[in-house]
């Protein structure tokens, strides 16, 4: 259909905000960030090109190393646990249980709450003096210790517990949609074939749900890289720097430590990581879209 000049102009005018955002915010800001990371900027940006110096410094920075170390632990545990729990929850709900709607609401409600709220609640629950540890001891388990949140080597696992609590419902919702999309007759055929239920899930259903798993995994992974609020609210990176994460490293160096060169180098590293994860996924999605 050939468009008249008038409607063509209207369409372009409607796309102007999006175009502007793309060019200025996404492309412009990203390029600037990358550029700053190649300069010696401290409090204010300068154009003194220093190559990859900032990245070198970054790699020698304890705080950054800890952050990366933490995010890897968090990422692997959070994604795998949320996928596992979310999938199990979806399978449980898919068994024609009673009060299905209520149960689903219970699993999903944490996802409607912010990371700040999530972090503060779990901070309270894990508080060793008055939280779960205290409850266990008052029940007679005198020696019970559950003080992960105040111990540097375990603080990051507390973020995992809170994160999984918040996000498993999301995985459940995605997986449940996938399970409900499975043809009823596949189940019947499997029963006639005499397959035990677990075997049907393992051998037939899970291989069929590749798309659901991919979607959930990518969604969770992008959440991992963005992890900031939870760390701030729950532990504020502590004890010490034990639960620092890259996003927080960037923010602190941008706004408190006035080292924007180092901060942008860290941000650029995050960017590269995300692109490395998302690009193959999007490529796969579009390829699949073309095939169908």
């Amino acid at each position: 259909m050939r468009l008249s000049l008038n409607s063509r102009l209207s369409a372009i005018s409607a796309l102007l905000p999006a175009l502007l955002v793309m060019l200025v915010v996404y492309i412009g800001a990203t390029s600037w960030t990358v550029w700053i990371s190649l300069t010696s900027s401290r409090m204010l940006p300068n154009n003194n090109f220093v190559g990859l110096r900032q990245y070198q410094i970054l790699l020698g920075n304890d705080r950054w190393i800890t952050s990366v170390h933490n995010i890897v632990i968090y990422g692997v545990l959070f994604v795998s646990l949320a996928l596992l729990i979310g999938f199990l929850l979806a399978v449980a709900i898919d068994q024609r249980i009673r009060a299905e709607d209520t149960i689903r609401s219970i699993y999903l409600y944490p996802y409607s709450m912010s990371f700040v709220v999530t972090g503060l609640v779990w901070q309270w629950l894990l508080n060793p003096t008055l939280g779960i540890q205290h409850v266990l001891r008052s029940w007679g388990f005198e020696g019970a210790t559950f003080d992960w949140i105040v111990r540097p080597e375990t603080a990051i696992y507390c973020l995992v517990v809170a994160g999984v609590w918040q996000a498993s419902g999301l995985v459940m919702a995605i997986m449940l949609a996938g399970l409900r999309g499975v043809d009823e007759e596949i189940w019947k055929a499997a029963r006639v074939d005499g397959l035990p239920k677990w075997r049907v899930y393992v051998s037939i259903i899970i291989p069929m749900m590749g798309a659901s798993f991919a979607t959930a995994a990518v969604l969770l992974s992008t959440g991992v890289v963005r992890l900031y609020d939870l760390s701030v609210a729950m532990t504020n990176g502590g004890p010490g720097i034990a639960s620092e994460v890259p996003a927080k490293f960037v923010m602190d160096h941008l706004f408190e430590r006035a080292n924007i060169g180092l901060a942008t180098a860290a941000a650029t590293t995050m960017l590269i990581t995300v692109v490395a994860v998302v690009a193959p996924y999007l490529y796969w999605r579009t390829r699949k879209g073309e095939v169908r």
């Binding site: 043809d183 007759e185 596949i186 019947k188 055929a189 499997a190 029963r191 006639v192 074939d193 005499g194 051998s203 037939i204 291989p207 069929m208």
Partner: peptide, 21 residues
């Protein structure tokens, strides 16, 4: 009895083939 123990086999309208096999 369970379907597998009935000595039956069944063919479905939507074929119900296991897609990843």
């Amino acid at each position: 009895a369970e379907p597998k123990d009935r000595g039956i086999a069944m063919v479905f309208q939507s074929y119900a083939l296991y897609p990843r096999m």
